[in-house]
Design a protein around this nucleic acid. Sequence first.
DNA 1: CCCCAGTGGAACGCACGTGTTCCACAACAG
DNA 2: CTGTTGTGGAACACGTGCGTTCCACTGGGG
Lengths: 183, 183
Amino acid sequence: MQENERGARARTRQAILTAAIEMLGQNPAAALSDIAAAAEVGRTTLHRYFPERSDLLRAVAAEGSARLDGATANARLDQGTGAEAFLRLCREYFDLGDLLSLIFTESDATPIVEGGCDERFAAMVDRGHRDGTIDPALPTGWLSSLMWSQLYAGWSYVSQQGTSRHEVLELVIRTVDGAIAPR
Amino acid sequence: MQENERGARARTRQAILTAAIEMLGQNPAAALSDIAAAAEVGRTTLHRYFPERSDLLRAVAAEGSARLDGATANARLDQGTGAEAFLRLCREYFDLGDLLSLIFTESDATPIVEGGCDERFAAMVDRGHRDGTIDPALPTGWLSSLMWSQLYAGWSYVSQQGTSRHEVLELVIRTVDGAIAPR
DNA sequence: CCCCAGTGGAACGCACGTGTTCCACAACAG
DNA sequence: CTGTTGTGGAACACGTGCGTTCCACTGGGG
């Protein structure tokens, strides 16, 4: 949003956004006072940056979309076989961390993931169907659901169990790999 | 709960419970007035059966556990190979319908699924690990997370997309089958 | 017929989250 | 030192969900 902010203001705004992503991921109905406390700022300060709850939600969605776009770009979806790109994307998205809960839980307005599946994602799946590395019986939409649910399950597994982040990522990759492979 | 209820009372209680499972699955913070409306009863009547919200939540959890136990029993986890039993369980659980959302969303108190994984589930996984039908690299806890996340993704897919219930179930089975198979 | 269990609408007090205003304090640049 | 900037506490009004009480209506069984 405000690109011209510097120093303290930019830092405070970012702290609030980060705390909001964490808290809203755990509970989409989190109170503003809880988000303010998590960001270690007063509720008054939060309202100074985001006058209404909807303003904060919009900023969180924008921040989420930006992080998501960055991760998608890092995955270089147009390189290698379809399945290779798919697994690379999973690895990149897994690093989104707290944001995964938020993306997966988004039943509300201002969606982070654009509806109808990203076109780069669809192109990657098509390539995988054609080069024989992705099971042609699995439609694009289901592959998207599959990926997000596995990523969310993995992230929850990290948060709840004591297993290390890297170890769980390998579990996710292994099961996704098996799930999308042709028979 | 009240086993001695008959006729109208039992019917009303069941209607409220069914509506509560549906509404709470869509939104865990659903208002009691919305649940009452979904059950086509007055809010007063709802309070007459479940004085406090926590009473309703406990009854919903009990009802959910009962349905879950029934489905688990139907799956005959001790028959066939580990993987066969695993997929049978997925088919049975998929029929839980609305309840899947509720089970997967339960971040609150009164959990429906007992913590630490059901012992029958663990025994089935162990058998699958030994008979070579379930990838030994996948621990029991992860297989549980995997199953629930796939079932939830499938159920959401049915609710959102126009795909038929049976068709989606086959997608779930296919991906789960590939995910748990040894390499 | 009357009784009564079951129901539901209306209204109230309460708790909580939200959005707002006002004021006090600390850090820092002039 | 003085004014500006960023902050946060206190208090208020408002809306909403919750839990309660009271009363009127309906339908079936005695």
